[in-house]
Structure formats: structure tokens, C-alpha cells
């Protein structure tokens, strides 16, 4: 999501009567909430009265008062990157043969179904295809190195 767009959303939210909102697009999620101009800070009462669940006050809410309404902007998974993980234990190869060009390089745009690498285990050659469309942002394993089951291999920025 574009940063300018986030700013616009925050401004609109500030002006609005809405107390809290949540917005999600693909892997990007934003949560906004207003805690009110005069936040009611409740201190934990005597333990005897609330033996089971003493209220836990978030440190953020206990901060000195702010001029603007409190805004808790929480960004989860800001990266939005898709991980390709190894389905098996084996050896990671970036090319179909030692002298061949690699299947993909950082910066390459791949489609769903584009072969990304080969993982060999016991004379079983496993062609790993991308399951998303996007751009190869990072290759996390060196050529001819062993990989474990579920080890992340590629980061793809989804398009």
C-alpha cells in the first residue's frame, strides 16, 4: 500500500466520528483507534477484588497526554512479501545444470508457475515453481547448499 494513501486514511479517520477502524488489503493490514481526548486510565484495584484478571494497561496508553487523539497505528506484516519454502530436505540448485543460467535472479518478475529452483534429494529432481506472481526480492540460499524441510528459499513481492 502506498504511504500517501495511508496518510490520507489517517487524516480522514482523525476528522471522522469513528472510534476505531481496521483495513486490510492482501497482506497489508492497518488498525486505527481513538482512545478519547481524556483517556480514562484505570489503575488496577486491590487484588482481592479482581483475583483472576487484573487489567493490564498497555504502556502506550499510559504515556503522558497528547494533543491529538491517541492513534494506535499498528502495521502487521508491512513487507507483504511472499515466502517460497522448501517442500523437502535436499540440495538447492539455482540452475538446471552446473553450467546453465540460473532459473531466476533477484529483480526478475515471475508468474505463477515460473520455475524458481531445483532441489535434489536421492536422484529426485524437484522443480519448485512460484505459486504467486511478483518480483523476486531475495534469494535466501546459496547454490548447491543443503536445505531443510520448510526452509525459506525465496522472497517474492506479490504484484
Amino acid at each position: 500500500m502506498d504511504f500517501n494513501l495511508i496518510q490520507k486514511i489517517v487524516k480522514l479517520f482523525e476528522k471522522s466520528e469513528i472510534a476505531a477502524m481496521e483495513l486490510q488489503e492482501d497482506n497489508f493490514k492497518i488498525k486505527l483507534s481513538k482512545t478519547g481526548k481524556t483517556p480514562v486510565i484505570s489503575m488496577p484495584s486491590a487484588p482481592a477484588l479482581y483475583p483472576h484478571a487484573p487489567e493490564i494497561i498497555q504502556p502506550a496508553l499510559l504515556k503522558p497526554s497528547q494533543d491529538t487523539p491517541d492513534e494506535v497505528v499498528k502495521e502487521e506484516k508491512i513487507t507483504g512479501l511472499h515466502e517460497i519454502r522448501s517442500p523437502i530436505v535436499g540440495t538447492f540448485y539455482r540452475a538446471p545444470a552446473p553450467d546453465a543460467d540460473p532459473y531466476v535472479k533477484v529483480g526478475d518478475v515471475v508468474g505463477s508457475g515460473t520455475v524458481l529452483c531445483l532441489i535434489e534429494a536421492m536422484k529426485l529432481m524437484n522443480e519448485i515453481e512460484s505459486d504467486v506472481s511478483g518480483k523476486v526480492v531475495k534469494i535466501l540460499v546459496d547454490n548447491a547448499k543443503p536445505v531443510e524441510y520448510n526452509q525459506p528459499l525465496f522472497l517474492i513481492e506479490k504484484s
Partner: peptide
């Protein structure tokens, strides 16, 4: 892992290939 020999000589070679979409075969 998967050669077949007769009298110490190779008679058969085998190669498996698998296709995965992400981590699903």
C-alpha cells in the same frame, strides 16, 4: 539410490522429477 546393475554393470538408470507449486507437489 536407484540404479540397477547386472554383474556389476549398469543396465538401468532412473530419474525422478517432481513439480511443486510453492510447496505443494
Amino acid at each position: 539410490p536407484n540404479d540397477v546393475l547386472v554383474n556389476g554393470k549398469k543396465i538401468c538408470g532412473i530419474l525422478l522429477e517432481a513439480g511443486y507449486a510453492g510447496s505443494t507437489i
